Amino acid sequence: MKIAIIGCGWLGKRLAKHLTGRNHHVIVTTTSPEKVEELKEVAAEVHVLDFSKDFDADFLNAAEVAIFSMPVSRHSWFEGFKKLGTQFRKSLFFSSTGIYPQQNGIFTEEHRENLRRDLLASEQLVTTKYPETIILRLGGLMGDERSLKNFYADRQPPDPKKKVNYIHYGDISAMVELLLSADHQNKPYNIVAPEHPTVLEVLNADQEASKTSSNEDRDRIISSDLFIKEFNYKFIHPNPKYF
């Protein structure tokens, strides 16, 4: 299958390596010419594509599937995306669980109140242009060098009792591969590890410690139950303590 990862950053590079290893023809884009040679190690084709400039994206015509993995916080993303003329058989869009309110509670895909406006606008733009798009709302990206111990190596976490909503890139890769052959309707899915330890528990994962008492009404929890149920998915990395 020919798959285009449009916006090949930290996650895109790992996803490209995974899909290439499964014998897919992977096309990736980057805004940085200096990253082209590096990305050639994980993809069959590498192209420079910058939505903030005039661009020619005819190379995308060969792709059957598009995976949109670009930061959407910039106005140039919206303007550039509108100019894409390629049609795809299927597309996936990496959004974020940051779309949900920053307040306590359990958030499922059914929650539609007070969603973050820029992320909601990006989801709506993508699904308007490509109605068959499946939206993946990703939790905090973890794995390899991305760990809380590295983030807080020289400082204390501001809220050590806060429960985390993280996802390992290995599960994202497996989920994407599953979706490539799935016949499911376009809708959003929360992509978050099913276990939610506290920041302190993750930092002290190698120590024996009493488990922090759970009070989900006082924590912000993003539920991935819908994806688990619909795809009978078993997480490779269910607990962020062991990422």
Rank of each mutant, 00 (worst) to 15 (best):
I3A: 03
A4S: 10
C8Q: 03
G9K: 01
W10S: 03
R14K: 09
A16G: 09
T20D: 11
G21E: 02
H24Y: 01
V26I: 15
V28N: 14
V28P: 12
T31F: 03
E34I: 11
K35G: 11
E38C: 02
E38F: 01
K40H: 08
A43K: 04
A44K: 14
A44R: 14
E45V: 06
D50R: 00
D50N: 07
D50V: 03
F51K: 06
S52E: 01
F55G: 10
F55R: 06
F55D: 10
A57C: 06
D58P: 03
F59T: 09
N61D: 08
N61H: 02
A63F: 04
E64T: 08
E64P: 04
E64A: 08
V65T: 15
V65F: 05
A66G: 03
F68D: 08
S69N: 08
M70Y: 04
M70A: 04
P71A: 00
P71V: 00
V72I: 09
S73N: 14
S76Q: 10
W77K: 06
F78T: 09
G80V: 00
K82N: 12
G85E: 13
F88Y: 01
F88M: 11
R89L: 10
R89G: 12
F94A: 05
F94M: 06
S96Y: 07
Y100Q: 07
Q102A: 14
G105Y: 03
G105F: 01
F107M: 05
T108A: 11
T108Q: 13
E110N: 11
H111L: 03
R112N: 14
E113P: 00
E113A: 10
N114G: 06
N114A: 14
L115D: 00
R116Q: 14
L120W: 02
A121F: 01
A121N: 07
Q124F: 00
V126C: 07
Y130T: 04
P131H: 08
T133I: 04
I135H: 07
G139P: 03
L141M: 09
M142A: 09
F151I: 15
A153V: 02
A153M: 13
D154R: 14
Q156G: 06
P157T: 00
P157V: 07
P158D: 13
P158G: 05
D159K: 15
K162I: 05
K162P: 08
K163P: 05
Y166D: 13
D171G: 06
S173K: 05
S173I: 04
S173G: 09
A174E: 13
E177H: 11
L178M: 10
L179S: 07
L180A: 08
S181Y: 04
S181A: 02
D183G: 12
Q185G: 15
Q185A: 13
N186D: 10
K187D: 04
I191V: 02
A193S: 12
P194S: 03
E195W: 00
P197S: 05
T198K: 11
V199Q: 11
E201Y: 04
D206K: 11
E208T: 14
T212M: 11
S213H: 08
S214C: 14
D219H: 12
R220G: 13
R220T: 09
I222S: 13
I222L: 10
S223V: 07
S224V: 11
D225R: 15
L226C: 12
I228T: 15
N232M: 15
N232K: 14
Y233N: 10
F235S: 09
I236L: 14
I236D: 04
H237T: 14
P238A: 15
K241P: 01
F243G: 07
